[in-house]
Simulated scan of single mutants.
Amino acid sequence: MSLVPDEIRLRLPHIELAAQAYGPPDGRPVIALHGWLDNAATFARLAPKLPGLRIIAVDLAGHGHSEHRPPGAGYALWDYVHDVLLVAEQLDWPRFSLLGHSMGAIVSVLLAATFPEKVQRLALVDGLIPPTTEADGAVATLAQALQGRLALSAKRKPLYPSVERAAQVRQRGVGHVSFEAAQLLAHRGLMPVEEGFTWRTDSRLTLATPLRFTQAHVNAFVRALSCPAKLVVAEQGLLAHRDGLEQLLANTSVSVERLPGGHHLHLDDEQGAQLVADCFNPFLSAP
């Protein structure tokens, strides 16, 4: 598989998304979804190690080179599910597999549970379900989210004198990454401005979620999964010590493989990417 992906544009009825395409056009169809505030470059090391697949790594709305949602719109998880369904329609893929990291894994689970006839296989990297809030916390959650929206216009994006400086800051961000991984994300995620560089991402992505699923909600989605699913849990990642994970996955179609590395183990270095590839290659190529 080529190390250099093809850049493509996906013109949906309501938004235009950017994506990177790996592998032969007649390869097994896979849509790859990145994590929160990342972009399609998160698969730069992993995708070339998955031969025989046609991987479309999407910049989700508001990220990377994709358009931002219009004023007044938000970035709910179900809106991303809708986007991916339209991406599959545009690609003329009635059935496909999903490869998701972090938030992209969560979106993949929601889609696979809701439209089981469309998803052949589900490959998840250190992501499964969103943070939950029970009903008695909903009022405070909504208040926090709306307060953030009201204050957003007064905030300014950070500025960096160089791509390297931005990568250093990203390295210490949510889901700590290696400097090399941060550089890959930064080169795709930054745009030049008069004062240097700033992130392309929509500032609304940093707002709190106004309404979260309850634990019962996420349990229902996981139980609804019917396609073969494999979850890679990073030993130093976000899921490694999550309470109730084994109970949640009991009697489901999801198998778990624990691998050394952090939340971005598929991107941090070539060794981690190879471990993830070794895990997913037989899985995604199975009939």
Rank of each mutant, 00 (worst) to 15 (best):
255 S>C: 07
155 K>D: 05
215 Q>Y: 01
181 A>E: 13
11 R>A: 14
262 G>W: 03
109 V>S: 13
4 V>G: 00
275 L>A: 14
160 Y>P: 00
179 F>S: 06
125 V>T: 05
111 L>R: 06
205 L>Y: 04
86 L>P: 04
166 A>V: 02
215 Q>M: 01
159 L>A: 12
36 W>M: 07
279 C>M: 12
202 D>P: 01
123 A>D: 09
37 L>R: 14
242 R>K: 09
32 A>C: 12
192 P>L: 00
227 C>V: 12
99 L>Y: 02
230 K>M: 14
41 A>Q: 13
192 P>D: 04
205 L>M: 07
254 V>R: 02
15 I>A: 03
152 L>K: 06
3 L>Q: 06
164 E>N: 14
8 I>E: 10
146 L>I: 09
238 L>R: 11
271 Q>F: 07
158 P>F: 03
33 L>N: 03
59 D>A: 10
121 R>T: 01
211 L>S: 10
163 V>F: 08
78 W>Q: 11
29 P>R: 15
177 V>G: 02
151 A>M: 12
158 P>Q: 02
226 S>N: 08
232 V>T: 10
27 G>V: 11
52 G>W: 00
168 Q>H: 03
29 P>L: 10
61 A>D: 11
15 I>L: 15
31 I>H: 11
133 T>W: 08
236 Q>C: 06
264 H>R: 09
269 D>I: 01
269 D>C: 05
226 S>W: 01
257 E>D: 09
150 L>H: 12
214 T>W: 10
121 R>Y: 03
59 D>W: 08
206 T>H: 04
57 A>R: 09
171 Q>H: 11
17 L>G: 09
69 R>H: 06
4 V>P: 00
32 A>F: 11
218 V>G: 03
138 A>S: 07
58 V>W: 02
280 F>G: 04
234 A>H: 00
167 A>G: 00
105 A>P: 07
138 A>M: 08
34 H>G: 08
33 L>P: 01
5 P>R: 05
127 G>W: 05
253 S>Y: 00
8 I>M: 12
250 A>W: 01
95 R>I: 10
130 P>Q: 13
109 V>Q: 11
238 L>E: 11
40 A>C: 10
88 A>M: 02
204 R>I: 04
5 P>Y: 02
113 A>T: 02
172 R>N: 14
130 P>G: 12
21 A>Q: 15
114 T>Q: 10
167 A>W: 03
253 S>D: 01
222 V>L: 04
43 F>K: 08
60 L>Y: 03
129 I>M: 10
86 L>M: 12
96 F>R: 13
112 A>Q: 02
190 L>I: 03
64 G>F: 08
271 Q>M: 07
174 V>G: 12
55 I>G: 13
176 H>Q: 15
160 Y>I: 02
13 P>S: 05
257 E>F: 00
272 G>H: 06
114 T>R: 14
72 G>S: 02
121 R>P: 00
6 D>Q: 13
128 L>N: 00
120 Q>C: 04
73 A>P: 00
133 T>K: 15
230 K>E: 15
163 V>P: 15
168 Q>I: 02
7 E>F: 08
279 C>A: 13
95 R>P: 06
206 T>Y: 04
269 D>V: 01
